[in-house]
């Protein structure tokens, strides 16, 4: 439970756009993520806000393709 709550807080960002995307994601998907997906999400959340927003909005692609599955979930909302 602790890990999930930590991730939930890490979805609080400096950019409103990310807050909105991540809040919707948390509501729909967070509780159902497996350990691997949760780890990918944390890796995405470690990125600087503007880089993460570019990924989410499809303006950039991740250097590491293993991030793709969770990124796709963020992109489709």
């Amino acid at each position: 439970m602790g890990e999930m709550d930590r991730v939930r807080w890490h979805c609080r960002r400096g950019l409103l756009e990310l807050d909105l995307v991540l809040a919707a994601f948390v509501e729909r998907h967070l509780e159902r993520l497996d350990r691997r997906q949760l780890a990918i999400l944390e890796e995405l959340l470690d990125k600087p806000d503007n880089d993460l927003l570019d990924l989410v909005m499809g303006r950039a692609e991740p250097a590491d393709p293993s991030l793709q599955p969770v990124l796709e979930m963020l992109r489709t909302g």
């Binding site: 807080w9 609080r12 400096g14 950019l15 409103l16 600087p48 806000d49």
Partner: peptide, 12 residues
């Protein structure tokens, strides 16, 4: 800081 420093709203 309640969030990681580089996630402050100045970033916007």
């Amino acid at each position: 800081s309640k969030v990681f420093p580089t996630r402050s709203h100045t970033v916007a």
